[in-house]
Write a protein that binds this DNA or RNA. Structure first.
Lengths: 345, 345
DNA sequence: TTGTAAGCGTTATCAT
DNA sequence: ATGATAACGCTTACAA
């Protein structure tokens, strides 16, 4: 079943059918009704390749994910992000293609890139890589392919959506300082991730505002896993100058591991060591004590990313779009606050 | 840059260029070399829409995921599965499209389905739904779209890849019986998931072989989350006849929640209650005591699914392909075994 | 408001 | 081994 047959059955021309399908206003009610009838009867749907060829729009957007899958992709953060992305794609009748490098071979990544971008498989790309030095950014610009980053980028001419990591981290650490803690550690991501950089900067800012010089061995960089958080906390506990009295952890998943390490070491939370997380995952309410955390709207980051890339696709000469979404301090037990406002488990 | 220009630059016809691109043997070495040269210089890649239109193959496979995203998708199981799927797609130069229903509105799901399948966006589909009664199976058959299930299906004419859940569960529970436990509980998924059904059946088989009739309130059905496991364990602990002395949990993620519930209730593991998980996630080694579990090759399930669907696409009249992958008992501390063979955290 | 016709960039079927 | 040429199924001026 194709346009031709359909047009024949409905007694109109191909163009009219095409207009109906694409919601063109210049169709008489009678014609539209007849065409829609035939479409419904035959459960017709236009061929996407033909559409893509003729219109130069595939209605597919790509989601580029870093290759450290088990490390990064296993974090519920990604599940929520993808959830938001898919949701908004569906709303806008766009399909989502997953782009993921599964080997360390740079040739393979190149091949993947070329097939997808240069093969015009995609109208635009959402990058969930977080690496400040990801070379794909330059390639996409060179190829004139619309893209948006989830996580800000230092260049001013790049579109992104993010939260204000610096302000959020500063606020969280300031809160810990308010509890009277003075030796506050930080567990955060690798140094080439923009989020890690910003959260560390916020941490230092809060300390400086309290007149405190950060101690070097109180900052641990690790990967965003439960296990990474576990090890990092062990390291903090073992440091020569003694354990910190509070720790700001840059993700709830790592914080979960950190809590486990504290328990295993026989430490009381928050009495011996207070903990503050980042993300606001529902899962963090299944911990004792319940995790205080910086809640960020992960799903909405994904939604907004889709909206941005779609408007970039729509208008080629669009200025870069840069948006910040709000975060919120969720004060529960692990930071030393009394009230346990956890959702019942 | 398109075939026409390329042909012109290389001094050959479109057909010859096309042959080179598609690896056709009937091209002289000289011509091939010249064409490849020009391709490299201009970093040419064929337009996928045009290819799809002419060849009726898009080289895209879909991955269909159930709509209870936060519930199911958050499980690292999916991360590993997708990892395997993407890996094999990349190897075979196939793209991966994510199909996910984000609303409960059946109309939206229908729309998604029609755009993807009837719009010939996809060559084939991998279904990671696990629901025995998923209507999409019938639709795909009716539309003649090749598909494969991750998780077996009762119908004999459906392709799938799975592990032998029944045998694996039986083995795990038999192991617990070997430790001398007699009141063994089970925490498993909803009753319409084939894996839940099979694992429960294996549990009952093992009990029967030991001459034990399963106690009804020792079986809890919940969703595959940490929180689900937590609540289920609480329920088991509170049952009138007293807590079980061991529990078989149908996923490591749920088991993690179950362990937490036991700790919060002041129970010692495995002395008061032994626990056995399912999946063999790396993450489970970050728990005290380290979780005994049934390891299944999740990534390979994904890889195999891709291979199956590709061979189904290749040969339309292919018989259904049904494959079982092996599982392995990983005995650590939580079941009562002495040796702690955990990876160091 | 509707129809005609010229692409869109490939693949595939013939000849040669 | 190579080249014409006709599909493939749709969009999109342009004409009517």
């Amino acid at each position: 079943m194709n346009l031709e047959e359909l047009a024949h059955l409905a007694g109109v021309s191909r163009s009219t059918v095409s207009r109906v399908i694409n919601g063109d206003r210049w169709v008489s009610e009678a014609a539209r009704a007849r065409v829609e009838e035939v479409i419904r009867i035959h459960d017709y749907h236009p061929n996407s390749s033909a559409r893509g060829l003729a219109s130069r729009r595939t209605r597919i957007v790509g989601l580029l994910i870093p290759n450290q899958t088990s490390t990064i992709f296993g974090d519920p953060f990604f599940a929520h992000l993808i959830q938001g992305v898919v949701e908004t794609c569906n709303e806008h009748d766009q399909s989502l293609m997953l782009l993921m490098n599964t080997t360390d071979d740079p040739g393979a990544g190149d091949h993947l890139y070329r097939r997808a971008i240069r093969g015009r498989h995609l109208d635009g790309v959402i990058i969930a890589s977080h690496l400040v030095d990801d070379p794909v950014v330059g390639q996409l610009q060179a190829d004139g392919c619309p893209f948006v980053l989830v996580g800000r980028h230092p260049h001013r001419d790049v579109s992104f959506v993010d939260v204000d990591n610096r302000a959020a981290a500063r606020e969280a650490v300031a809160h810990l300082l308010g509890h009277g803690y003075r030796h506050i550690g930080i567990i955060t991501g690798r140094a080439n991730m923009i989020g890690a950089i910003d959260r560390y900067a916020g941490y230092v800012t809060a300390l400086s505002e309290a007149g405190i010089m950060p101690e070097a061995d109180l900052a641990i960089h690790t990967d965003f896993t439960r296990r990474g958080g576990y090890r990092a906390m062990q390291q903090l506990l073992a440091r020569p100058a003694g354990p910190p009295d509070a720790v700001f952890v840059a993700s709830d998943t790592m914080a979960s591991g950190a809590l486990q390490a504290l328990r295993d070491a026989g430490k009381r939370i928050p009495d011996d060591v207070a903990v503050f997380g980042f993300d606001g995952l529902d899962e963090s309410t299944v911990s004792r004590p319940v995790l205080s955390t910086v809640a960020q709207p992960i799903g909405e980051l994904g939604q907004e990313a889709v909206r941005i890339v779609l408007s970039l696709i729509e208008r080629a000469e669009q200025e870069p779009i840069q948006r910040y979404l709000p975060t919120e301090l969720v004060l529960r037990r692990s930071c030393g606050c009394g009230a346990d406002t956890s959702v019942a488990v």
